[in-house]
């Protein structure tokens, strides 16, 4: 996790375009200034960052399903549940699934675990649009390579 730049996903473990599912890993840093305030003596990942991590996982899935032709943007968070504490140094594994593909929007469900323990879950709605700026597409391509996006999964 690169908390300062909000790049929360480290690695794509599995992407299944046909099943419309993704599994990713996100290593919570051992040290970060966030933990100085959240909370002193009891550092835990803020729920908003867990929600964002679930959204970014869903986002990579949607990018894959849409073959990087459109960019998803988080529009709605429902049923966000922080079910357990996530501590510095823990490895978060997030699974996301597309529940519905609408016209210009998509709905996903996502779950985050540490080991086998469910830590967070949410239902997320995204608007998606053609890439609004070529620089964003270039950035997403670079990020995709960095986190091991399986480009062969979206090859024609």
């Amino acid at each position: 996790m690169q908390l300062d730049t909000f790049q929360l996903i480290d690695r794509i473990v599995d992407l299944n375009i046909d099943a419309k599912t993704i599994t990713v890993e996100a290593q919570v840093p051992q040290h970060h200034t966030i933990f100085e305030g959240h909370f002193p003596g009891f550092p835990i990942m803020p729920g908003v960052l867990l929600t964002e991590a679930m959204a970014q996982s869903s986002g990579w899935l949607l990018l894959g399903v849409m073959k990087f032709e459109r960019m998803p943007f988080l529009a709605m968070v429902k049923e966000a549940k922080m079910r357990g504490f996530v501590s510095p140094g823990q490895l978060l594994t997030i699974e996301a699934k597309i529940e519905h593909e609408g016209s210009g929007f998509a709905v996903t469900s996502a779950k985050g675990r540490v080991g086998t323990e469910l830590k967070c879950s949410a239902d997320l709605t995204f608007r998606h649009i053609p890439f609004p700026d070529p620089a964003l597409r270039v950035h997403m391509d670079a990020m995709a390579r960095k986190i091991g996006f399986p480009l062969q999964a979206i090859a024609p």
């Binding site: 529009a75 709605m76 519905h100 609408g102 016209s103 929007f105 709905v107 709605t125 608007r127």
Partner: peptide, 11 residues
């Protein structure tokens, strides 16, 4: 935004 929710439910 609400219409997205409605569209999801109608779909």
């Amino acid at each position: 935004l609400d219409f997205l929710d409605i569209a999801f439910a109608i779909d």
